[in-house]
Design a protein around this nucleic acid. Structure first.
Length: 267
DNA sequence: ATGGTTGAGAATCAA
């Protein structure tokens, strides 16, 4: 089973990119974040011709919004609101693996948190920290040894030193501050999660999934951050076959600033 | 220290 996650930064202007990705990568399931559109205006039939006939859209006007496109039918599905807000930042489905057992897939778009890394001075940063705390509590409360969960999405935190181009220079930059990486570590510990990308890529190696639009040459300056993640619960670690950042996609014409991340599970 | 770009949707706000 191949599962892909991608912050698409507006699904409507990147329709052809989504189709190209589905065609080239043939994921069974594609999770999108920042679709930036209400459900009614989501591009009709996106992926249908390629066999993605099951979809869960949780949209919002102009901001945020998540969606799941799938070749596999959903046994269950749902959406959830966080921090007492109406933001569309989480959608989940369960699907049957080839072994007949269900997996539960959670697609998240964690708040970016604004520019000032101080919850007192910046309510967006406070929201981000609260969101991560609620995620940790929620997954801790549902913890079971037998859980077969996959958590994907733009978590807007680069947790490891080599998840950013300069650990030292980003310690006070939102996405890599200690208070955020600590909060993400609590989510990570809440269900015994395993980081699928770092399962295959040594922590000593630089690894990014996002490069700012503001660089003159994103590839040459290579000042990236790993904001997009795929985690699995311990019951699925033995099924991990591969995981990678599809960096080439960041070089497509007028792309999203995020590259997709894909995992392959032997299920 | 600063400014650099993109998207939504109509002046800025968010990232």
């Amino acid at each position: 089973m191949r599962i892909c996650t991608w912050n698409i930064n507006s699904v409507r202007i990147h329709v052809s990119h989504v189709e190209r990705l589905l065609e080239e990568q043939q994921p069974d399931i594609l999770c999108l974040q920042e679709i930036k559109v209400v459900n009614e205006l989501f591009p009709e039939g996106l992926g249908h011709a390629l066999g993605y006939r099951h979809q869960l859209i949780h949209g919002q006007k102009a901001y945020h919004g998540v969606a799941i496109l799938s070749r596999l039918p959903f046994a269950q599905s749902g959406t959830r609101h966080w921090c007492g807000k109406e933001d569309a930042r989480h959608a989940w489905v369960s699907v049957k693996g080839g072994d007949g057992k269900k997996i539960e897939l959670h697609n998240f778009y964690v708040p970016a948190g604004g520019d000032i890394p101080d919850p007192e001075a910046n309510e967006k940063f406070a929201h981000k920290l609260q969101f991560l705390d609620e995620m940790a509590d929620w997954f801790a409360a549902r913890r079971k040894k037998s859980s077969r969960f996959v958590l994907v999405g733009d978590l807007n935190v680069a947790p490891l030193e080599n998840d950013v181009w300069s650990h030292k220079q980003l310690l006070k930059i939102v996405s890599h501050t200690p208070v955020e990486t600590d909060a993400l570590a609590r989510v990570y510990g809440s269900h015994g999660w395993v980081d699928a990308l770092r399962h295959f890529v040594l922590p000593e190696e630089k690894l990014y999934s996002w490069w700012s639009y503001r660089a003159r040459d994103w590839e040459k300056s290579d000042r990236g951050r790993r904001l997009d993640h795929i985690w699995v619960t311990p019951a699925l670690t033995s099924a991990l076959a591969s995981a990678q950042v599809l960096k080439d996609v960041r070089g497509w014409q007028r792309p999203s600033d995020h590259a997709p991340v894909i995992v392959e599970l032997n299920l």
